[in-house]
Simulated assay, not measured.
Amino acid sequence: MNEFYPLNKTYVFKKDGSSGYNYFSPVSMYFREQMWSEDEMYDILKEVAETSFRYYTQ
């Protein structure tokens, strides 16, 4: 699903690769066995939202 990109990392900058046909679009996927707490998920989603906002409003 995420090619060779690691899990549990935030990806906002969607294009990776230098040619017109050889690029990847990693997504932010967080997985683990134990349940996530609300605070953990809040922190992760806050980071995604803030990074997206900064990137797309430049």
Rank of each mutant, 00 (worst) to 15 (best):
M1I: 13
M1E: 07
N2Y: 01
E3L: 00
E3R: 00
P6Q: 03
N8E: 01
N8T: 00
T10H: 03
T10G: 02
T10L: 05
Y11S: 00
Y11D: 01
V12F: 05
F13Y: 12
F13H: 12
K14N: 11
K15C: 07
K15V: 15
G17A: 05
S19P: 08
S19R: 05
Y21S: 13
Y21K: 14
Y21A: 11
N22Q: 09
Y23Q: 08
Y23C: 08
F24C: 07
F24N: 09
F24R: 05
S25N: 11
P26K: 00
P26D: 00
P26M: 00
V27L: 07
V27P: 03
S28N: 02
M29A: 12
M29R: 13
Y30R: 02
Y30G: 02
Y30P: 04
F31H: 10
R32V: 03
E33P: 14
E33S: 14
E33M: 13
Q34I: 15
M35H: 12
W36P: 11
S37I: 04
S37Y: 02
D39I: 03
E40W: 06
E40L: 07
M41H: 02
M41E: 05
M41T: 06
Y42D: 07
D43V: 09
D43L: 08
D43I: 07
D43Y: 03
D43K: 05
D43H: 08
I44T: 06
K46C: 09
K46E: 10
E47N: 01
E47T: 00
E47K: 00
E50K: 10
E50S: 11
E50F: 11
T51Q: 04
T51W: 02
T51E: 06
S52P: 12
S52L: 13
S52D: 11
R54C: 11
Y56T: 15
Y56N: 15
T57G: 04
T57R: 06
T57K: 04
Q58H: 15
